[in-house]
Structure formats: structure tokens, C-alpha cells
Simulated assay, not measured.
Amino acid sequence: MTLSLAMITVDTADPLPIARWWAEQTGGSIVAENEGWFVTVTLGDGQPMLAFQKVDDPTPGKNRIHLDLTAPDRAAEVQRLIAAGATLIAEHEMPEFSWTTLADPDGNQFCVATAGTH
């Protein structure tokens, strides 16, 4: 049996604003709002969807799973994300690989690296 990744779901107290933020940042679009309790964002053909699920008490602290994203110009993309409401957490450097850790407006951490370096 083979599994395929279809959707990545994030728990949040208020799904619609954070779904809108991620849709805007990824060039995706909201495809279902489900009265605000489960909002899904499509990222395009062949890519998993993002979903934001309303929960009364989101898990506190650092998220255990995070998104690793890439961009052709990491520095420009990081600046764009910060201007859009992301928070810079840290810059990381290793031989032949570097990445930036950010948090979205809801506090969920994610990383951005230069495309082709993973």
C-alpha cells in the first residue's frame, strides 16, 4: 500500500483569517469555508491542500510539524512574508544550505529555503 499526502491541517481558534493569509502568501485559493469551522486552501494541481480547523484550545508552544517552503529568491520572499505579517524567528546556515524560520500571524512556524537546495 502507498500513501499520498492530500492535505495538511492546522488547528486554530479562528480558521478563516489564517486561511486567507496562507492563500494569499502561496497564490492559493480558498475552496471551502464550511461555516468557518474547517477552511480549505488549494495550492494547485498535484500539491496537497492546506486546511485550517477550528478548535477551542489550539496546542500551545512550538508546532510539532511545520511546512518547509522554497523560493527562487529566499531573501526577497522572507521580506515579503514579514511585510505581510509573518514574524522572523531565526536564520540558519549550514555548508551549502541555509533557511529562514518564520511564524505566520497565528504563531505557526514554517521555514523558507532557496528553491533547489533541499
Score class of each variant (00 low, 15 high):
54 K>P: 03
51 A>F: 07
25 Q>K: 12
51 A>C: 09
87 T>R: 04
22 W>T: 05
74 R>H: 11
90 A>N: 09
116 G>D: 00
113 A>H: 06
76 A>P: 10
76 A>K: 07
6 A>H: 10
18 I>V: 13
56 D>Q: 13
49 M>K: 13
31 V>S: 03
81 L>K: 01
58 P>D: 03
105 P>I: 01
83 A>P: 02
60 P>W: 01
101 T>N: 06
23 A>S: 09
83 A>S: 12
12 T>F: 05
93 E>S: 06
86 A>F: 08
108 N>P: 00
7 M>E: 14
29 S>R: 09
75 A>I: 13
50 L>Q: 14
97 F>W: 12
20 R>M: 13
53 Q>K: 04
1 M>Q: 07
98 S>F: 00
69 L>I: 07
29 S>T: 14
6 A>V: 08
37 W>Q: 09
63 N>V: 12
82 I>M: 11
3 L>A: 10
60 P>F: 01
76 A>G: 10
40 T>L: 11
2 T>H: 09
100 T>N: 01
54 K>L: 07
89 I>N: 03
4 S>C: 11
67 L>H: 06
112 V>H: 01
106 D>S: 07
72 P>C: 08
96 E>T: 07
53 Q>T: 04
47 Q>R: 12
16 L>H: 10
87 T>V: 06
82 I>H: 03
101 T>Q: 15
63 N>Y: 09
70 T>V: 14
5 L>W: 00
67 L>Y: 04
38 F>A: 12
14 D>P: 12
88 L>A: 00
22 W>L: 14
16 L>F: 14
66 H>N: 09
11 D>G: 13
68 D>N: 09
103 A>I: 00
3 L>P: 08
87 T>I: 03
4 S>M: 06
112 V>T: 03
42 T>E: 15
102 L>S: 13
96 E>Y: 14
35 E>L: 11
71 A>T: 05
30 I>P: 01
74 R>D: 06
55 V>L: 04
13 A>S: 08
82 I>V: 15
75 A>S: 14
18 I>E: 15
69 L>E: 12
38 F>H: 11
4 S>T: 05
34 N>M: 07
79 Q>C: 03
60 P>N: 01
36 G>P: 00
52 F>H: 02
57 D>C: 14
45 D>F: 15
30 I>C: 00
87 T>P: 11
110 F>Q: 08
103 A>T: 00
58 P>N: 03
46 G>N: 00
97 F>E: 04
88 L>T: 00
66 H>M: 12
100 T>W: 02
15 P>E: 10
69 L>S: 05
21 W>Q: 06
73 D>V: 02
76 A>V: 02
97 F>S: 08
81 L>V: 06
97 F>C: 03
97 F>V: 08
98 S>G: 05
28 G>N: 02
105 P>L: 01
71 A>C: 04
21 W>I: 09
43 L>R: 09
53 Q>V: 03
95 P>S: 00
33 E>Q: 08
